[in-house]
Design a binder for these strands. Structure first.
Lengths: 190, 190
DNA sequence: GGTGCCATGTAACGCGTTACATGATTAT
DNA sequence: ATAATCATGTAACGCGTTACATGGCACC
């Protein structure tokens, strides 16, 4: 959902064509989040099909699109409504650790160490990038770097917490004997 | 990639059938990450096609699967190799904020406020759940809650940082006179 | 006349979600 | 007998990625 709405947002500033949208997108994210052009075209196709965008073939060659009223409305609700998905997105690292928990003892700790190493490397890289970003001339780039740094930090702290918890845990192996695990969140059967 | 590997990990503990895998998965994640059964079947199909899993139709009815040697190898490399994708995953909230940056002034701040409200709500909910989780009888559940909490905290702190940066940014026209509103985060050291 | 870039696509696949369909077993 | 639950699937769609194909145009 991020890409379609981002395209819509950029088209709300001025009409653009496919490759232009791709370039703008990558420019705004400092190249951290590359976007395949192919996806831009298929996405534009869906947006046009849904009437959120309309083609204005000004000056041959470039197929320029303009946002529609319906598109502006969709965009507005994207900005207004925070992501209220019932559950936070599945996290591969967390799943890996949960799955490693029920295995012979050294596995979890090895996973933690390996992952922490990578997170620390990333943290260093992002911090360096932030230092290189001299003046506040590019606000978006700084915000993006902040986000990457905060996330990497949170990841490292979580891995540390995991290690600590596991260390002072009685014993970590028993899987099969677990109670059916009814936790307050549940409600998967509507 | 998370789901296939998680299924493989659970099958490495003992053979299971489709619905059993779904239930185990949801039990281990405390129901926070519901998993559609349909996806389990299609994923098992791909795993079997790729030779990572094999069907052992013990005792009719339930189609029980067992992991293969190739599967164990794949699984081992999943555990061993941290997620080294060149770029961290695209983040919808960050994109939304970057896109909001290039709009008439009140928009970005409104987005920040709305998103922070939701993050704080989640933070409270997770903290409550953690308090309710009495003894360390379910280590995985506690680790999962830690992760959710750390992430929510990081999100709130990032939103605060964004507000601060935007406030003291030159070309941020002063339509909205809101103080940076520092929101102290309760330290939930595990 | 190549070489390279701009610009637009298409195809195939994996993952994920929602919804619907079909039997079999169990409970009331 | 009916209803609920278990268990297995399928269909359609969106999003995302990788890879390949096609034309035009500029540069040397």
């Amino acid at each position: 959902m991020s890409v379609p709405m981002s395209l819509l947002a950029m088209l709300d500033e001025r009409p653009m064509y496919g490759l232009e949208l791709r370039n703008e997108f990558e420019a705004r994210t400092g190249g951290v989040w590359p976007l395949n052009v192919g996806q831009v075209y298929t996405t534009l196709g869906r947006l046009e099909r849904d009437g959120l965008v309309t083609l204005i073939d000004e000056q041959g060659g470039n197929k320029t699109y303009r946002i529609t009223e319906a598109g502006r409305s969709q965009l507005a609700s994207w900005f207004a409504r925070p992501d209220r998905t019932p559950a936070p997105a599945r996290d591969e690292l967390v799943l890996k650790l949960l799955m490693a928990l029920s295995r012979p003892t050294p596995d979890v700790l090895a996973v933690i160490q390996a992952e922490r190493r990578v997170h620390l490397e990333r943290l260093q890289e992002f911090t360096r990038l932030k230092a290189d970003a001299a003046g506040p001339d590019d606000l978006g780039w700084l915000l993006l770097l902040d986000s990457l740094i905060f996330k990497a930090e949170a990841g490292v702290r979580w891995l540390d917490a995991c290690e600590a918890r596991i260390a002072r845990h009685p014993q970590s192996s028993p899987t099969a004997e677990r109670a059916p695990a009814s936790h307050p969140i549940q409600e998967t059967t509507p």
